[in-house]
């Protein structure tokens, strides 16, 4: 019986290894590059949301933050596409910048325009659209 040629053996091993790596990498190749870039894009703005908004709007972004139990008006559920979809982008930006009172809503939503930059507020608006998975009605 003829023994296995060592060169053939190693060639086959390398081929198998390459195939294995390719199989492993296959699923990631299906993730669109835009989605991966999106995840990175939200990381920074999520940190802002977690710092300033979660105290009232909650970890789940649905208006159930630790402060919400003591409020006479419940914080907005940012995951509700129906309700969030009714709010135009400009109104979201105005509410974050000048507070709830500026859009005829509760005083309990404070003005963040002196804490966050305009750029950050615009990015938060985009993030809220991402969270509710909805667009806003135009005025």
């Amino acid at each position: 019986m003829r023994g296995l040629d060592p060169i053939d053996f190693f060639t086959k091993q390398i081929q198998r290894s390459l195939l294995f790596v390719l199989v492993l990498l296959l699923p990631t190749s299906f993730i669109p590059p835009v989605a991966r870039a999106d995840d990175a894009k939200w990381t920074k703005i999520e940190k802002l949301y977690n710092t300033y908004c979660v105290q009232c709007h909650g970890i789940e972004r649905n208006g159930t933050g630790i402060n919400s139990k003591f409020m006479t008006v419940q914080p907005r559920d940012h995951t509700d596409p129906k309700e969030m979809g009714k709010i135009p982008d400009e109104e979201i930006i105005k509410a974050i910048t000048y507070g709830g009172i500026s859009v005829q809503k509760s005083i309990l939503m404070p003005a963040w325009g002196k804490v966050l930059t305009q750029q950050e507020i615009y990015e938060l608006k985009d993030y809220l659209r991402h969270v509710c998975n909805c667009g806003g009605e135009s005025k």
């Binding site: 105290q55 009232c56 630790i66 402060n67 003591f70 409020m71 005083i107 309990l108």
Partner: peptide, 20 residues
Amino acid sequence: GKLRGCSACHATKEGGGGLS
């Protein structure tokens, strides 16, 4: 409380305001 909304995050008595 009602007019400036500080009670959203601060309590001035037990159960009288937010916790953050």
